[in-house]
């Protein structure tokens, strides 16, 4: 760069140019405000319109089997929903499903991503295999696990059990929720691996090397360097997975239909079955609002816990 261009460049940013830059920036800021609005607007509509309808439905009697009887019933639907035995089962199952899946995917995800972060032969193929389940649609996932893997007679698990001289387990009869947790964990483990693997790539190698020279063992390295580095990505995994796991539906729909009894009914499935199997829209709406409320409580804590961390880029 010649001296004269430097001079022109520096002169451009001084004096009268300043004013025009400020005005351009102001104009752009104004334009930019209009650019957020489509997103905000559609999401606002998406939230407010159906939600207010749900509130209205939850306060009236509204059963598709008895049309025309839509009188105002106050909080009767809520009372019904909250005292229904399905509600506590649904709550419990939702918590178990989300909690155990998070635990399994995060713990295994950390271990596996640390493992494949080392160099070895065929790492590319290993990675592809590890993240593949993420591309499988939940309905396929559920049916393959139910019929090909967990089937008590012809499933692969049964064969393995028999091979070791054990009695094959009828998963969906005796441990239905465990089976669902296995299915869902298999689906979401790749997501954890994907994010944690990306994060490990930015781990400071020199820092690790220095620690190693200082005599830190592999466990100390993992605990003091790797794990703290993964704190943020783990928070991201927990947050995104929670969002999706709270409303797990297809896996239950295609395997157990919520049963036996209420054993695999989560809140999402409970409300679905009331609305579309029992046609009680009023009750389902009350349930939907309670689910929204609970999700908001969860969201509040999640955002408190990690949201602050995330936007501080």
């Amino acid at each position: 760069m010649s001296l004269s261009t430097v001079e022109t460049l520096s002169s451009r940013t001084t004096g009268s140019q300043d004013a025009s830059i400020v005005s351009i920036a102001k104009k752009n800021a104004r334009v930019s405000r209009y650019m957020v609005s489509p997103s905000v607007l559609v999401l606002l509509l998406w939230m407010i319109v159906p939600l207010s309808m749900t509130i209205y439905f939850s306060l009236i009697r509204y059963n598709l089997l008895y049309p025309g009887e839509n009188e105002f019933v106050g909080f009767e639907n809520y009372e019904f929903f909250l005292t229904d035995e399905g509600f506590f089962a649904g709550m419990g199952n939702t918590l178990l499903l989300v909690g155990f899946t998070l635990l399994i995917t995060v713990v295994l995800g950390v271990l596996i991503s640390v493992l494949v972060n080392k160099a070895f032969w065929g790492r590319g193929i290993v990675r592809v295999m590890l993240i593949s389940p993420f591309f499988i649609m939940p309905t396929v996932n559920a049916l393959v696990w139910k019929n090909l893997l967990l089937h008590p007679v012809s499933g692969v698990f049964a064969a393995v059990w028999t091979f070791f001289g054990a009695e094959p387990i009828d998963w969906f009869t005796h441990y239905p929720l465990t089976a669902i947790i296995m299915i869902v964990s298999w689906q979401w483990l790749p997501f954890a691996i994907l994010i944690l693997m990306t994060a490990l790539q930015s781990l400071d190698q020199e820092q690790q090397e220095a620690a190693r020279l200082d005599g830190a063992g592999p466990w100390a390295l993992f605990y003091h360097i790797t794990l703290p580095h993964l704190a943020r990505p783990i928070a991201v995994v927990v947050m995104i997975e929670t969002i999706f796991l709270l409303s797990i539906f297809a896996e239950i729909f295609t395997t157990t239909g919520g049963g036996p009894g209420y054993e695999t009914t989560n809140l999402a499935y409970l409300i679905y079955s009331q609305a579309l199997l029992q046609f009680d829209v009023g009750l389902a709406s009350a349930g939907g609002l309670i689910a929204v409320l609970l999700a908001n409580i969860a969201a509040f804590f999640l955002v408190r816990m990690i949201g602050k961390n995330l936007t501080e880029a």
């Binding site: 999401l43 319109v49 969002i243 809140l267 936007t311």
Partner: peptide
Amino acid sequence: TLLWMLSTKMLPPVGVLVP
């Protein structure tokens, strides 16, 4: 705004299925 947008994803879809 950003967190609010994300929180709309927290709404369980069943809550708004009927409407």
